[in-house]
Nucleic acid binder design. Structure first.
Length: 255
DNA sequence: AAGCGGTCCAACCGCAAAAAA
DNA sequence: ATTTTTTGCGGTTGGACCGCT
């Protein structure tokens, strides 16, 4: 594997972009697209390397980028998605429309880490359940449990697989679901192996994620009912459901 | 007003994966 | 199948900005 030569070539500009450069880049991409980033700066007449152009476009100039401060809901979403996905900023960004991985990474390092240190978890009194499971389609425990191993690659927020740690499963304690604890909050999950969760969490889009979950008998939902079996992602109030449905559009809302 | 330290964010760097040749 | 090129990602940095002393 040979690393692509970077913009060390003499004559290529580095540092902050000027409005003129932005204009040139935007105009070119609007007209011709960005088929080949490496060739683009030459064709567009920019003294930048392709990498710099791509970064400028994806992180700043793209028309679908939402500028401005992050809302509390967005911050909470980042915290929860970070618990699920770890430092996979692009995966997190994929679930936050209009936000870039760079921006999310910055927010995480500048605000959210601090917020968590001050022990301010996501707000609200209720939990949003994105996924609940069908008991009648429960996978065979004997088949699945052998490979059930929520190690580091499984949802990283999992602190325990001990079903006795459940705090919300009193009314579903008679089913065979795996219960996981999420930083003190428990959730009932369908039994699945590590690779399943890796696939779910790395799914390129939410439809795919929902499909993966349905494949093992899960019923994707978004709602606030604490009574349902669910893959507990977060704690939110009713007003947040639209926001979350935007992130997981394939889910059904719990009535 | 000046100096200093902390914060924030755009941009860079290096690596690895994916795609193309 | 192998090599080369391109793209994408995450970690890090530089400097502008702001508030405090």
């Amino acid at each position: 594997m040979v690393r692509a030569p970077c913009c060390e070539k003499m004559g290529l500009k580095k540092g902050p972009w000027t409005p003129e450069e932005d204009h040139v880049l935007v105009t070119y991409i609007q007209q011709y697209g960005h088929g080949n980033w490496r060739a683009l700066p030459k064709l567009a007449g920019l003294l930048r390397c392709g990498k710099s152009c791509r970064l400028r476009w994806t992180n700043y100039l793209r028309p679908d980028i939402k500028r401005g401060n992050f809302s509390r809901e967005e911050e909470d979403a980042i915290i929860n998605l970070h618990e699920m996905l770890g430092n996979r900023w692009s995966a997190i960004a994929a679930r936050l429309p209009g936000r870039t991985d760079n921006e999310i990474k910055n927010v995480w390092h500048t605000h959210l880490k601090k917020r968590l240190k001050q022990n301010q978890p996501p707000t609200s009194e209720t939990r949003a359940y994105f996924f609940s499971t069908k008991t009648e389609q429960e996978p065979e425990p004997s088949e699945k449990s052998e490979s059930l191993d929520f190690g580091p690659a499984s949802p990283p927020q999992c602190t325990s697989s001990d079903t006795s740690s459940a705090t919300t499963s009193d009314n579903n304690s008679n089913n065979d679901k795996t219960c996981m604890e999420f930083d003190g909050y428990a959730a009932n999950l369908p039994e699945a192996d590590e690779s399943f969760w890796s696939e779910v969490l790395s799914a390129e889009n939410s439809d795919q994620m929902v499909d993966q979950f349905q494949a093992i008998g899960g019923v994707p939902r978004v709602g606030v009912s604490p009574a349902d079996n669910g893959f507990c992602l977060d704690m939110y109030d009713d007003n947040s459901i639209d926001f979350w449905l935007n992130i997981f559009p394939g889910a059904d809302e719990i009535p």
